[in-house]
Write a protein that binds this DNA or RNA. Structure first.
Lengths: 140, 140
DNA sequence: ATAATAAACTTGCAAAATGCAAGTGAATAA
DNA sequence: TTATTCACTTGCATTTTGCAAGTTTATTAT
């Protein structure tokens, strides 16, 4: 399917060429929350992504090194997806999205709770969460 | 045209509902660089946005309070667009996109120069740039 | 004053991406 | 061995994008 064509050499444009659509960052979000997800897990998310779109986004994100597949320990029928380092490095961006949203939307309180945590010590949160995601990354 | 329908109450999802497409953040980028742009200025950007898409994005961004129109001092035929505070608040997000991109793409050196600046003192850069954009905001 | 140019869009249509519903095929569970 | 689960695929309608050619109002040149 997807051949990545760069519109320009601008960092913002190049980034959007990869994950600049309505769905990709939601997949990344799910992986940041859950560390690893199956195909079915993504389908269960609140936004109700269509299965064909999910498949094409997962492929795109994998081709661009944001996520990887791995075997599910329990079953060959299942596939686990997780973030690569390149994907984990989207965490600061994800945090800023949340901080911006908190200023301009009214959010459910479980989400607000996390954002409040982040605001208390952004650097600390980033370090800790990055580490957690990386740890998960290493136990194959 | 655009009636904003939220897919969920998630901050990431709500944010993407507004600017989660291939073009909106490029418009914001242009405004962060140039402080204010005419319709024609946007068309001149490297990525070559189609004029109808530009019109619909500008409308969307205006409806959602990210940008505003103002009269051009030189001519009634021209229109100036600038960021609102809500738009200016996307700066930290924009900065993180640049930092991520710098890690994973090879960028033109003028862009690298700015990113290097940012890395030296992120907080300082954010404060200074926000102030500049706000200053511009206030002289109607 | 009149005609030509420019600036900000609009319109029409083809092509691509999205969304929905119903498959398919391999693997596990009953 | 049959049924169910899981990860996708496929087909088709709808929506969005992209391209090219207008249209309209405002300025500039004659």
């Amino acid at each position: 399917m997807s051949e990545l064509k760069k519109r320009s050499s601008c960092p913002v444009s190049s980034s959007l060429d990869i994950w600049g659509d309505k769905w990709s960052l939601l997949i990344v979000r799910d992986l940041m929350f859950a560390k690893q997800c199956t195909y079915g897990d993504f389908l269960k998310s609140a936004e109700k992504i269509a299965t064909n779109i999910l498949a094409s986004r997962l492929q795109m994100l994998e081709e661009n090194g944001i996520i990887t597949k791995l075997e599910h320990p329990d079953s060959k029928a299942k596939v686990l997806y997780k973030l690569t380092q390149k994907g984990i490095d989207l965490l600061p961006l994800m945090v800023e999205i949340n901080l911006w949203a908190e200023k301009y939307f009214s959010l459910p309180k479980d989400r607000l709770a996390i954002i409040t945590e982040v605001k208390k010590d952004k650097e600390g949160f980033l370090k800790a969460t990055t580490k957690e995601l990386q740890r998960n990354s290493n136990l194959t």
